[in-house]
Design a protein around this nucleic acid. Structure first.
Lengths: 138, 138
DNA sequence: TCTTGACTTAGACAATGTCCAATGTAGGAT
DNA sequence: ATCCTACATTGGACATTGTCTAAGTCAAGA
């Protein structure tokens, strides 16, 4: 059993076949699937799995912090299982490819006190955009 | 006539009543309306304006760089007319309020060469999240 | 093995956005 | 001032993404 499934069980989750396949689809560090893509891949192993179950499971994984929701394009949200090390995203404007990146320094440091308007700022999400080598070549 | 309408005319835009009211709704620095909110406000002045026209006009304003599309919550996109000075956004996790903020330094500087994977990186969008004074007090 | 509350399902519904054919009109041409 | 016509608008169908619910199913503890 993967670490993820084990952590889920530790949290008191019932380990159903549906949750297993969703977790298996997300297992790996470099996927950024939409809910529909997760559903398609899950359905390849468990054909009767419902869309709602995939949405439910993804939401639960997000709420317990095992998966991060990423919306880089204002379209479908993507689900990033690499939640254990904080990171940001680099997106190709051409093909939409998403890479995890690790900027140096604390992103919050760039926001001066005078620009905080009394907010308690706890987090910064950065999306870098550019052109990937393949799109630059093509 | 506002500067914005003048710039649009310079670009060869036909200045229809619909485009005028959309531009007027967006005129001002601190609005971050959704397309539906823009439509509602435009319809207050020009009741027969169609949703599609608002979407069209907003898309055109975005494509010529007069307005920036912001999606901070994975739900409806918001339209930010303050496109002339680059800025980032600070969002309250409680009430969703959005403020324009101006971080110090070049956001791209935080991404080391080794984290660029051969991309030509041209832009960084930062969303700071926190709690606004009102939500902290309540 | 039984029971039970949590999970899953199918499909209706909601929110947001896009597309198209028919109609209207801004602004240049006359 | 009027006419033309290419461009803009309209209304509504459709698409995409996500949420909700009632009824059935099942994992796991007793």
């Amino acid at each position: 059993m993967s670490d993820l499934l084990e952590r889920l069980r530790d949290r008191g989750w019932r380990l159903t076949a549906q949750r297993r396949v969703v977790a298996e689809v997300l297992d790996g560090d470099h996927v950024h699937y939409t809910a529909d893509e997760v559903h398609a891949r899950a359905a390849a192993r468990l054909p009767e799995i419902a869309r709602a179950t995939v949405y439910n499971t993804l939401s639960e994984l997000v709420s317990i912090g095992e998966v991060i929701e990423v919306s880089t394009d204002g379209r479908a949200k993507r689900y990033d299982p690499n939640a254990r090390r904080t990171h940001q995203h680099l997106v190709c404007s051409g093909c939409g490819t998403i890479r995890d990146v690790h900027p140096s320094g604390d992103p919050l440091a760039g926001l001066p006190e005078t620009e905080r308007f009394g907010f308690t700022v706890s987090d910064a999400t950065i999306t870098y955009r550019g052109t990937c080598p393949q799109c630059a070549a093509g």
